[in-house]
Amino acid sequence: MSSVEHPLRKYLRPSVEATTFCPGCGDGTVLTSILQAIDELGMTMDDFVFVSGIGCAAWIISPNFNADVLHTTHGRPIAFATGIKLNLPEKKVMVVSGDGDLTAIGGNHLIHAARRNIEMVVICANNGIYGMTGGQVAPTTPREARTITTPYGSLENTFDISRMVQASGASFVARWTTYQPRQLTKSIKKAIQKKGFAFIEVISQCPVQFGAKTGAGSAVEMLEMYRKSSISVKKAVEMSPQEIEDKIVTGEFIDTAKPELCEEIARLKERIRGEG
């Protein structure tokens, strides 16, 4: 019997035999899309340092990626990644984590990394709930959705993460669902090549917690919902807020060039060397 290896298997740690994702989880799509993007760009894992926080999505890279991987504390991966990037500016630094990690407990670091426009790719797998800890409400949970800590439905407003990151000063911001892996891969490729802070939000299904608790259903039902509800950024501009309310606006929100922090620091050091 000849063994056929998956073309992306070479990017995974040889010791990894299975992932920790539940059946139907969207994190597998996120994992594949990242590796596909790296593969298509002809890069190697040694070009990267990967950083994650705590939660299901943090385990997309840890321990799976056969690369320098730093699995950190809850909410802080961007802060760690910033320290790495400032000292290894020639490497690509990528943060992969969940919505609770990056926007609730770690929201401040996300805002400031975007403001600094430090070159970094941040991929946020947004499943709208705390999965690993048992299905609690998240800042990204839809209003009125029932979770284990909002048994009568959530009373809070839902975070529009991508718009927040864009407003904070990021160079590149895109949002896709796991129903759009090709578009997602294309945006990840752009993000990796971006000289600046690049953020990608991936709306990702969690059938076990979100699906079961909120009534969104199985993985297939949730993907079907993503297909039906997604509209492009361009189309959304022409629609009223009421019309957009239940839609998922997907696409690239911003793709611009502006001064990047590591380059600015390098320039300053050069200047000081010249004066000295």
Partner: peptide
């Protein structure tokens, strides 16, 4: 480089990240 962070949590995290670059 001295990096002024958004809070002390970020300071220790950036420090640890930097230390892992040697």
């Amino acid at each position: 480089y001295f990096f002024q962070t958004e809070d002390e949590i970020s300071a220790i995290c950036a420090g640890i990240g930097a230390s892992w670059t040697g």
